[in-house]
Amino acid sequence: MIKIAVASGKGGTGKTTVSVGLARAFSLLGKSVALVDCDVEEPNCHVFFPESRAISRKDVISLVPHVEEDLCSGCRRCYEFCHFNAIVVFDKARILDEFCHRCGGCNLVCPKGAISEEEVRIGEILEWEVGERFRLREGRLTVGQANPSELIKETKDVSWGEVVVIDCPPGTGCSVMEAIEGVDLVVAVVEDTPFGVHDFEKFLLVTEKMALDKVVVWNRADISIGGITKVCADKGIDIVMSIPFMREFQESYARRKDIVSFSQRWRDEFLSLAKVLLNRIEENKRDAT
């Protein structure tokens, strides 16, 4: 099984377009494909597969800590342990749910057993069959939940497929790190605007720290301030595809079709991209052994 994460830094650069196109291309190459939508706050890969068949749905449960005030002595050990400032202590400990990362540490360090954990439904995972050897899996965060990482972790835990394509959330935070952790290759979809270049550079800091191999797909490549090419040249990053600002992409979206099924030209482009990525991952694996 090989895993490819499609990520971006900046939002709205074309992650889903590229994810869906790549998944379709791998499928055309004869691979069994799992397309995994980890953009759990607003998953939308399913938009492109109106004729797919739902095959499963399950709830994802998380343990949320609570303080039993009668038992709390206000010793502050949980407060000192928490890295996310999710606990304050004014006489008694108080947990701020929206900042809690559910690490369970407060419960472990409490000497009075004053912290209990309650089950909360943080989201769900849905699966569809797109084709005989092509599945879509989607994480959907419950409205009001603030921490998607746990759900992303479970969503990307796939047991099926020769190729797994992960559509990541935007940004450079915890949820993105969770989505790209352990993949064979990161495809960064970027645009060459001041905002786009800034976020791309931030994103590169994350991939460097996580020691992940990456390539760039340059979207809206006819709009340029010269930033992306410079960053890629400086860092030796390959730009493996350039997509101009084209009507075809908007049309395919409006018709709920992936770009590979919609356009002959882009079918060819995505097929060669898929091959390039497969070769690269194979080479990396060979070099590692």
Partner: peptide
């Protein structure tokens, strides 16, 4: 995260 609550503490 949670700069406000940390400041209150």
């Amino acid at each position: 995260t949670a700069a406000g609550p940390a400041a209150v503490q």
